[in-house]
Design a protein around this nucleic acid. Structure first.
Length: 260
DNA sequence: ATGTCACTTTACAAGTGA
């Protein structure tokens, strides 16, 4: 089984690259974030031609998440109980026979001390509480998406420079650890201990070219899935300006392969 | 720290969020 997560920064802008990725990787599950697309405008037809069902929770202009799958989900849930920002389309749960998949787009937070930063921490607290009250670590569950948090120093190109900044403050890292403590594994860390693996590079200042990246896109899985990890990699090529049709997202896809 | 991108609107330029 292959699971992908990708913050596409507009499904409309990234559709040619997404379709190419489906052809190239043949994933079973794809979690998308920042689709920036109302549900009725989602490109369902092009995806159906590739054999994918698209479960969507979108809105105009901002946010928006989706789960693509070869099999139609048994049920869907948009948002979660006690979401502090219920008007923002940031979380979608799709249930299948073999597993449950959550696609999440965590609040960016802008800067330490910004009201959005406090909302980010509260959102992650509420998410953990909902997961703990809804699921079991014994069941096959995936929580994948843009966490807007780099978990550890090895996930940051310049840890000393980033320490205490947005995406790499201790309160944010504590929230990610709380999810791991509940019973998730960071699937990439089941495959490799290497540092310097990044999933996001700022569009500005030539950050990608300079290697100024962070690993903030994660695929978390409970043990029934984490125990089956064969490989987890980042498709950095998707971040290159001329690698595909159209401009790149500022995020690269994360691709996990699990034993069947 | 900021050399961009995608989106929106009392739209052909400027503000916003990231």
């Amino acid at each position: 089984m292959r699971i992908v997560t990708w913050n596409v920064n507009s499904i409309k802008q990234r559709l040619p690259r997404l379709l190419a990725l489906l052809d190239r990787e043949a994933p079973d599950i794809v979690c998308l974030q920042e689709t920036k697309c109302p549900d009725e405008a989602f490109p369902h037809e092009q995806l159906a031609e590739r054999g994918y069902h698209a479960a969507t929770y979108g809105q105009r202009a901002y946010n928006g998440v989706a789960v693509l799958s070869r099999e139609a989900p048994l049920s869907l849930e948009r948002g979660f109980t006690a979401d502090p920002t219920p008007d923002e389309a940031r979380l979608l749960t799709a249930r299948y026979d073999a597993l449950t998949v959550i696609s999440a787009y965590v609040i960016n937070g802008r800067a330490i001390g910004d009201p959005a930063y406090e909302r980010k921490l509260a959102w992650l607290d509420a998410l953990r509480a909902w997961i703990a009250g809804t699921f079991s670590p014994e069941e096959p569950l995936v929580l994948a998406g843009d966490f807007n948090v780099a978990p550890e120093a090895r996930d940051v190109h310049d840890p000393a420079g980033w320490e205490g900044s947005i995406h790499f403050s201790e309160p944010e890292r504590t929230r990610v650890r709380a999810l791991l403590d509940w019973g998730f594994a960071d699937l990439l860390r089941r495959h490799t201990t290497d540092g310097g693996i990044f999933t996001w590079w700022d569009y500005r200042a030539g950050a990608f070219h300079k290697g100024w990246g962070l690993r903030i896109d994660l695929i978390l899985g409970t043990e029934p899935l984490a125990g089956r990890v064969e490989e987890v990699r980042v498709d950095r090529n998707e971040r290159r300006p001329k690698a595909g049709e159209g401009a790149p997202s500022d995020h690269a896809p994360v691709i996990a392969t699990l034993a069947d």
